[in-house]
Design a binder for these strands. Structure first.
Lengths: 107, 107
DNA sequence: TTCGTCAATCGTCGATAGACGATAAATGTA
DNA sequence: TACATTTATCGTCTATCGACGATTGACGAA
């Protein structure tokens, strides 16, 4: 259980910064893959953005493969699974696996 | 969008520590509410646990009301909503609001 | 009132995170 | 080859995190 908790904590840590959330939103909104456009979008220094990308990549949330002179970043949503499961466990009182639009509104 | 991101980042930060995840699991597994039992369960110093509880409470993830000489902690799952929504947005490629067990396995 | 218990706060310490500029490495192009 | 572009890494600085012991405050019990 504590191994899992460390993994989940690391995932949460990867999401625990507005700049990284912004990067994920960018990758989500961009059909292809983007490289240095991220730097302009988040408004931080190139080295800082590179560090955030490294953290996200280390957590497995994104993938980055070198494509010529630039790097192609893409989302890897599956990596968030453990964290999503934990939150689901906490938010779902006891029942409701899925597909149960009962009195719990899901906005 | 960045206000929301800051809020989500703060929530993620609250989850970004194994001890805090452990506390949440304890609160989830405990029917009533518990006080200092948490200290024994997580195996850290009382002041350290109190600090973790303060962080969770500041994020709104738990509530703590004083009940006589001790404090009664309880989960507040609704506070995780923004984070859950973000993760849902990322993990759901584009369609599939819910109730669509297609080729994406949901373990 | 006095004591014991429980939780919060304070002060301190080392470790980590976050930001930046400067530099280096890789690659396509002139 | 030489150059421009793009990204990663390094070094440095400040701020925050995480842990602890010690102290304080609140409350019930003797």
């Amino acid at each position: 259980m504590q191994d899992t908790d460390i993994e989940i904590a690391d995932l949460a840590k990867a999401l625990a910064h507005p700049a990284r959330l912004r990067i994920l939103r960018l990758l989500l909104a961009t059909p292809g893959c983007i490289g240095g456009d991220i730097v302009d979008a988040v408004g931080l220094a190139q080295s800082t953005v590179s560090e955030h990308l490294r953290i996200l990549k280390a957590a497995g949330v994104i993938t980055g493969e070198i494509s010529g002179p630039r790097t192609c970043y893409a989302l890897n949503p599956a990596a968030l699974e453990p964290l999503a499961e934990f939150i689901g466990t906490v938010t779902a009182p006891s029942a409701a696996v899925c597909c149960m639009p009962d009195e719990k509104e899901l906005s």
